[in-house]
């Protein structure tokens, strides 16, 4: 079992996210070839059909495209559109959740802002 994958969400979605991360972080530059579904399957120890589903998800969104007989490649402009999408998700995924937890712990909005600033300085 691969610890890179968890049971919280469908596995193919997690595969798609891992490819997205690699594109955003530059590990998979635009116009570079993406590993085959069989390679994904072997690496994450998942069914190849599941890996293919994750890749297809990105193909449908135009992030990846297929070169016949060769394999899947990262589309031009993929990184920019992914960053855009992730920014939209950022608020929902991180900010709202953070506010909720802060409220539970009695952290005021000012204290929270301080913490964010401190975190920002560290990195």
């Amino acid at each position: 079992m691969s610890f890179l994958i968890d049971d919280s969400r469908p596995i193919f979605v997690q595969i798609a996210e891992r490819i997205e991360n690699d594109i955003i972080e530059g590990a998979l530059p635009e116009e570079s070839q993406v590993p085959s579904t069989n390679q994904f399957a072997a690496f994450y120890q998942i069914n190849p059909a599941t890996a293919a589903k994750g890749v297809n998800l990105l193909t449908e969104q135009g992030i990846l495209y297929k070169k016949r007989g060769i394999g899947m490649f990262v589309a031009a402009g993929a990184k920019a559109s992914l960053v855009e999408k992730r920014r939209e998700q950022f608020y929902e995924q991180y900010v709202v959740a953070m506010m909720r937890e802060a409220e539970k712990l009695g952290i005021t909005q000012d204290q929270l802002a301080d913490m964010v600033r401190k975190g920002g300085n560290k990195s």
Binding site: N38, A41, A42, Q45, I46, N47, P48
Partner: peptide, 10 residues
Amino acid sequence: YDRLLEDYAE
């Protein structure tokens, strides 16, 4: 599991 996936893919 490794060998099964690997050989199944091929």
